[in-house]
């Protein structure tokens, strides 16, 4: 058994550190994720589950602070723009000697 003063290098000492932030910052973060993932073509349910899952701490924190309804509103706002469309990705033909090029179509759906 030994004694020590509080140890600044102990990671556990950091628990509970609060940094200044406010609702506007949280809202902005939530809106950023919504825009980004809507642009990527994720569906509404996929984007919402990102906020609902505790593993995704940033998004989830916004969900806990702002509530499901507000998050859904933010997501819908982004989807109203980026979710209208279906992004379609088509692979270029493989250059394999002798074979006929068969483009592969990957469809990413919007909302």
């Amino acid at each position: 058994m030994s004694y020590h003063d509080p140890e600044p290098e102990d990671p556990q000492e950091l628990v509970g550190v609060e940094l200044p932030g406010d609702e506007a910052v949280t809202r902005e973060m939530a809106a950023t994720f919504a825009d980004e993932f809507a642009q990527l073509g994720l569906t509404r349910i996929q984007i919402l589950s990102l906020y609902r899952r505790a593993e995704y701490t940033g998004a989830h924190q916004a969900w806990r602070l702002l509530g499901e309804d507000e998050i859904a509103r933010i997501v819908d706002e982004s989807l109203a723009v980026y979710g209208r469309f279906v992004w379609v990705v088509t692979d270029g033909p493989e250059e394999v000697a002798g074979s006929v090029a068969q483009p592969l179509r990957l469809v990413r759906r919007g909302s």
Binding site: M1, S2, H4, E7, E9, D10
Partner: peptide, 8 residues
Amino acid sequence: LTRQDEGA
């Protein structure tokens, strides 16, 4: 490994 771990 850490200062907290030191002791006998």
